[in-house]
Design a protein around this nucleic acid. Structure first.
Length: 376
DNA sequence: AAGTCGGGGAC
DNA sequence: GTCCCAGACTT
């Protein structure tokens, strides 16, 4: 009687494909900066930056950050504004605050010694299940699996899982299966960092989102249920996210002499600690110019006499979108700003503006300003 | 379980 | 426009 090539395995025994996954990874892994070190500090910084952020985006930030703050002590001692400037444009700025808070805890409370296990890393701010497992497996060889967006997609397809991968229960099931796979495969157990990175790399390069993964190149293809049944386009199953609201905002670039007014956002709120121009949302039926007058009066106590439209910037945040109407406003020389919505207001010369950390949308308004100035 | 928290690339 | 990205945290 002819026997299938993999008849010696039970349906849940995926050791042979695990071995080919590791071989594929070692042949195809990208040469990324954080793959040239085992320094837990550097691996940690990379994993925080990589949260919800693409590899190509992170690379320049990672290299600049480590040049400026090459070790734990430097990070713990860095001024907040310098830290945020290094993070400017990367998004999710709370990551930077948590990173430094954790560094301070390690330096001051843990005698400068980083945690030795995933459970220890998990106690630190900004480090959840994924990041703790990633650091411990990659930098410290602890055999714990990571579950990120890539891994969820690969697992859902290979195992033909139709449960919503956004549900914690589904994620836990996948984590448990991966732990068993790692524990039962000597090659993976001995190189958990490679195993974890192999799954993520496969998700990034081969088992990509959408309806056209590159199954012909996949080392797991022989045992992939989604590929076998031609269901890669349907998997993974993920609940659709609801539509995001769209706001219109008016902001004023207020000049007084040769200075421009900027405000520092409260630390605990969105874009905390970053600097931006005063302004706010349009109310229902309100024109941008009317909103500008109202907001500048409310936020800094300025009666706007004349506002010249500078331009419009569209920007998408994670849970809403905005169209920003920017204006040039001249303030009288006697004007003194009294901020009501910000931690601090400051008058800055145009040359000094780039020294302050600002959100991406504000940087784009600034670019409008420079273009406008050149046209004059 | 759902909402908050950025920004950008791919389609 | 939509979806996704080496997620964490709060409520």
């Amino acid at each position: 009687m002819p026997t299938p090539a993999h008849s010696s395995r039970s349906p849940t025994d995926h050791r042979p494909q695990t071995t080919s996954l590791l071989a594929w990874y070692r042949a195809h892994r990208r040469d990324l900066p954080w793959r040239r070190t085992r320094d837990p500090y550097r691996i940690w910084v990379s994993e925080i930056m990589l949260q919800q952020t693409r590899v190509d985006t992170v690379i320049p930030y990672y290299e600049r950050f480590l040049r400026a703050l090459p070790d734990l002590q430097a990070l713990a001692a860095a001024p907040e504004q310098a830290l945020l400037k290094l993070w400017e444009g990367l998004g999710y700025y709370r990551r930077a605050r948590h990173l430094q808070a954790a560094a301070k805890r390690i330096v001051h409370d843990l005698d400068g010694c980083v945690p030795a296990t995933a459970a220890g890393w998990r106690e630190l701010p900004g480090i959840g299940d994924y990041t703790a497992a990633a650091i411990a497996s990659i930098a410290q060889n602890e055999p714990v699996p990571v579950v990120d967006g890539n891994v969820l997609r690969v697992a859902a397809r290979v195992w033909g899982l139709t449960d919503d991968i956004a549900l914690p229960r589904t994620r836990e099931q996948i984590r448990t299966r991966l732990q068993a796979l790692m524990d039962n495969t000597p090659a993976a157990h001995a190189a958990p960092g490679d195993f974890n990175q192999a799954l993520m790399e496969l998700g990034a390069l081969v088992c990509i989102p959408g309806d056209s993964p590159r199954c012909a190149e996949c080392p797991l293809q022989p045992d992939c249920i989604a590929c076998r049944d031609d269901r890669t386009a349907e998997l993974p199953v993920k609940a659709r996210r609801r539509a995001v609201p769209h706001y219109h905002v008016a902001v004023g670039i207020v000049r007084r002499g040769n200075s421009i007014l900027v405000q520092k956002r409260p630390a605990a709120k969105m874009l905390g600690g970053l600097w931006e121009f005063p302004g706010g949302k349009l109310q229902s039926g309100e024109t941008p110019a009317a909103a500008l007058r109202r907001e500048l009066c409310e936020e800094i106590g300025l009666e706007v006499i004349d506002a010249e439209p500078l331009g419009i910037v569209a920007h998408a945040y994670s849970h809403f979108r905005v169209t920003i109407h920017a204006f040039l406003v001249i303030a009288p020389s006697r004007f003194r700003a009294r901020p009501t919505a910000a931690d601090e207001a400051r008058w800055v010369t145009p040359a000094a503006l780039p020294l302050l950390p600002m959100p991406a949308a504000t940087l784009r308004i600034l670019a409008l300003l420079e273009k406008n100035a050149l046209a004059r």
